[in-house]
Design a protein around this nucleic acid. Structure first.
Lengths: 338, 338
DNA sequence: TTGAAAGCGCTAACAG
DNA sequence: CTGTTAGCGCTTTCAA
């Protein structure tokens, strides 16, 4: 046995306080019907014995563990870290955070089945991942309060960054500066989870062109795996084009860094000869003076948790959708086309 | 009630399979003494009802939740994210990860008391944080398997990066390149948790000088809050010195970036006029061509978990200490003094 | 205001 | 090999 010394139980407290377990339970749960003097005595006993109620035992009754689950695809790096960090900062007492890692779609489905089947969590926040039909069905059926963060589903409260608008504003910024030939380096449209970020950002890019009534050139729209290395490779190709674009719009800061790298290698000055934009406003974007798009992790975490708590406290409430508008951060990698 | 639909219990399965709960329990737990045919029947019933055993109920018996706790100070950024991510990758079935955020020393103590008092976790990994005497006492007393990651305590298994040696090798690298006047920008020695990173890195720095029998100048040893901004400020002062150091050794990559920034602003070429080193090998160090010190998060996570599992499986085992040697990564911000 | 007793879902003797 | 029974620690009627 791992736990050598046995636990102090409610009975130990009861005995010491000269009452029964029921009374101790009442005190613990703050019920009104306990004599002041008795309550004091119990409290003293609890203190003295250093008693902590067993969440396992009380949970057996309520079918609740006082734990909030967070399902995440760990590979999202800084994005995920920040969201998680803010969630942990706003999670109300006495909830604990349980981390579930959806490394693959199969693991994700499996984990969800287990969560819905075990029915021990008080709530679940699904980050970035979409909910498949089958999964959504199980979720509804289990009745587990569930919120989507950075994704949407009609049947569940969802809070997400508006990727279409974010990208729209970003591209529009470039257009306003006079750019017309704006290359796009997008992230992969195809991924095992079928995320829609790339698709939405692509839409935002096109929307900006449509709104400005400018035709866009499919020949300068590229796709890679969101990586710096991939973007660097593509940027080199772009820089060598005869009719070279005057700006490169990336769907991630990482990609933008790769582009910056390529520009440096090719001896092309940024922003003098070409403008470059990122997306995400990662910690280092500031140092690179990267013009980019910022999303408030603090806000999204707060809202997701608020939604979840509301869902927990009044299960009937209808699922709201909140779209968060990203903010354009103009720094030094973009400038007016002369 | 949040959980509308009630749980399928072991009794439902037993009824459907035409056996008693005890037999179902045996099947679930893979006990040998169940007739093959009976087992099949039970398994089918489980499948059919989509039954998941209640961890709360079974946990009430074993006093275990099949959960591993991770206590972290969330502010550590990339470092913490990587460790956590690797832990989640190597955590063995069927353990879950529970996150505890030690935002302040008080919260940390509180959380530990609760953890030790509740006795529900199967094990706990404390990341980066030291264990106070009182906390260690409670830990021992509770018998909870506990492992320290990135810190040491005589009574508990510990795995950590050797900061003295890491810094020693880093500084030695500079000395080997012919540098003698090497400024140090260290992180704060004083912090609410009384971490010893700064102290150890400082020791490593001095050790390198001692070994080389070179006197060092306390006048070029600085301390800031590990931040980029702080380091940038200090670097500017350093760059203005009459007898300017030929190299600046930082105790974090963030600081090194700040120094690089200052050099650029002051028009001092790196590494031609001055060498700069970081520590941590963060994601972006590579892009900056920063010479730095790398620590393997994968290794430290794996070892911590192995230690914990051993501790869980044989509580008596004596607490090992494993020091991980950081690796020097030479890139382009350091060069031989001419 | 407090106690007695039943029960949450599962496990572990102990019989048979 | 399988059923019976008695808890694990806490909560919650129902009485007193």
């Amino acid at each position: 046995m791992a736990q050598t010394h046995k636990k102090v139980t409610i009975y130990d407290v009861a005995r010491l306080a000269g009452v029964t377990a029921a009374t101790v339970s009442r005190v613990i749960n703050g019920k009104a019907n306990v004599a002041h003097e008795t309550r004091e005595r119990v409290l003293k006993a609890i203190e003295e014995l250093n008693y902590y109620p067993s969440p396992l035992a009380s949970g057996l009754h309520s079918h609740q563990s006082n734990q909030i689950g967070v399902l995440v695809p760990f590979f999202f790096g800084e994005f995920f870290y920040k969201v998680l960090s803010h969630i942990s900062q706003v999670i109300p007492f006495p909830y604990e955070l349980v981390l579930y890692d959806a490394a693959t779609p199969e693991i994700k489905t499996h984990t969800l089945q287990k969560i819905f089947g075990e029915k021990k969590l008080n709530g679940l926040i699904v980050i970035s991942l979409p909910l498949l039909k089958e999964e959504a069905f199980l979720a509804m059926q289990s009745g587990l309060p569930l919120v989507l963060l950075d994704n949407v589903h009609p049947s569940f409260p969802s809070v997400y960054f508006d990727n279409v608008m974010g990208m729209f504003h970003a591209t529009q910024h470039l257009i306003k500066l006079g750019h017309r030939r704006i290359a796009l380096i997008n992230g992969a449209h195809e991924d095992p989870f079928h995320l829609e970020v790339a698709k939405h950002r692509h839409e935002g890019y096109r929307l900006a062109f449509d709104m400005a009534r400018i035709p866009f050139d499919p020949g300068i729209m590229f796709v890679n795996d969101w990586s710096r290395a991939g973007a660097r490779f593509i940027a080199h190709k772009i820089l060598k084009m005869k009719n070279r674009p005057t700006a490169i719009m990336c769907t991630s800061d990482l990609q933008a860094i790769g582009v910056l790298e390529a520009c440096k290698e090719a001896g092309v000055a940024v922003p003098e000869e070409i403008s470059v934009m990122g997306y995400d406003d990662m910690d280092f974007a500031d140092f690179f003076g990267l013009t980019t798009v910022q999303q408030s992790f603090q806000t999204i975490a707060k809202i997701a948790l608020d939604m979840l708590m509301e869902r927990i406290n009044q299960p009937g409430s209808k699922p709201e959708k909140v779209a968060l508008m990203p903010t354009l951060i103009v720094r030094k990698t973009t400038r007016e086309l002369v």
